[in-house]
Each structure stands twice: as C-alpha cells, then as structure tokens.
Amino acid sequence: MSESNPSPLDVAQVAHLANLARIALTPEEIEKLTGELGVIIESIAKVSEVATPDVPSTSHPIRLTNVFRPDVPGETLTVEEALSGAPERDGDRFKVPAILGEEQ
C-alpha cells in the first residue's frame, strides 16, 4: 500500500489473513481489499470507545445454560448419504489431494 494511505491494514497483513482463511486471493484482490477493509475497520473501531473493562461481554443474545442431550444413539446417515456431496471419493471414504501440512 502506498504511504499516503493511512489504512490500519497493509497488503502483507491482508495476504496473511487470506492465507489463514485459505483463500487464494489474487494480488489485485488483496490490493483492493486492503483499501476497502481499511475504511471499514476505521469506522467500526469505535466499538472500543464504550467497551470499558466494567462492561461484561454478551456472546448469546438470550442466555441459557446447561443445554444437554441424553447419551442415546440416534439416526445416522447412510454411507451413500454421507458421501452424496463428495467432490471426490474412493470407496466409502472422501478423497483429497496430498496434504502438505501436518496434523495439529
């Protein structure tokens, strides 16, 4: 991004975020998003003005607790239903290209 742009984001950050989000953005998209998101972030950053430490967080609009299900087996999908949407399968398993990274 050019230095004249006071965006809170730069292209390197957007590229990093795109990698975290697993989207192969083109350089043009990254450039465009950097500007757009900069504007959006500036306008939404004002939430911190009123979010003082004494204010608790709300993660659910209607607060419930202890919502559980009994440990009783229910209906499962058939193998064909399970694999019905698979872009690629091998027998009864989903097939994916070789994996670069490792299990977490």
Partner: peptide, 30 residues
Amino acid sequence: VKRRIILGTYALSAGYYDAYYGSAQKVRTL
C-alpha cells in the same frame, strides 16, 4: 463473502481480538 471472511479473520486474530471482537461483545451488552 471474501471481504467479510477476511474482516472476520482479522477481528479474531491474535492481538486484535480484545479491541475488536471483545469490544463488540461488550457493545452487545450495552
């Protein structure tokens, strides 16, 4: 969709969570 996914990834990422997502959850209380 891409715009919002990137924005959301940013809001949750290390170092920004408290200022953005965390603050937004407080605004919700207000």
